[in-house]
């Protein structure tokens, strides 16, 4: 049986990852607020280790159409960042940015690039925090976007991790803008060996 780091994460390591999530999300909220020129709050991120089979269900309905923005993280600890926005949130968010009525079933290229830009800002802020804490120089790729059923986007994004584990690490964050909750799911998906490197850089002895 392969050694599965996901099954060895104790509360202390989870707390450390949660703290990275917290700091990253705080940075991201600030960047996001500046971008939208409004006040944006973020909920405290939750860190969960899930069996891979449950992943397609984590945003709710597997078949529900969503927007997924995927970025590759390159450097010492390769990873993917996936940002998922549900239908209502996409309409509100793009509506806020473009100052117009937005119909999810009729998103154009400009709407999608606006969403990619949000993915860019959020993951950039997140990586900044991660780099500061670990002394890594992680950089991100150009974002890619897909509009399709949640389960298909989620399962595909988990592939790099699923090669070495039957579990996944999920950091979920929610933004709140004014009275309208815009719910975004943010996932950090460490590729093979990366979680170990992050934990070691944070001072954990994994031997």
């Amino acid at each position: 049986m392969a050694q599965d780091i996901m099954e060895q994460l104790d509360d202390m390591k989870k707390d450390a990852l949660k703290e990275i999530g917290n700091i990253g999300a705080g940075n991201a909220a600030t960047a996001f607020a500046q971008f939208l020129e409004t006040k944006v709050d973020m909920t405290v991120p939750s860190v969960e280790i899930l069996p891979i089979s449950e992943v397609p269900e984590i945003t709710g309905n597997i078949e529900e159409p969503v927007v997924g923005v995927l970025l590759q993280v390159m450097g010492e600890a390769p990873a993917s960042i996936l940002f998922i926005l549900l239908e209502d949130s996409v309409e509100r968010l793009v509506g806020m940015m473009a100052d117009k009525e937005v119909d999810f079933s009729d998103l154009d290229d400009i709407d999608l690039s606006a969403l990619k830009e949000i993915g860019n800002i959020i993951s950039g802020s997140y990586l900044n925090a991660l780099n500061k804490l670990t002394n890594f120089n992680l950089i991100q790729s150009v974002p890619e976007c897909a509009v399709d059923m949640a389960g298909a986007i989620l399962s595909t994004s988990m592939i790099p991790l699923s090669k070495t584990s039957d579990h996944t690490l999920l950091i979920k964050t929610q933004f709140i803008e004014g009275s309208q909750a815009i719910e975004g799911f943010f996932f950090l998906i460490p590729h093979t060996g990366s979680l170990e490197k992050i934990l070691e850089a944070l001072g954990f002895d994994l031997e």
Binding site: G68, L70, Q72, S141, A146, D148, T156, I159
Partner: peptide
């Protein structure tokens, strides 16, 4: 067996 994202950069076989 679809290709959900069209990432062209570096990494990967995935």
């Amino acid at each position: 067996g679809a290709k959900m994202f069209s990432i062209s950069s570096s990494n990967n076989s995935s």
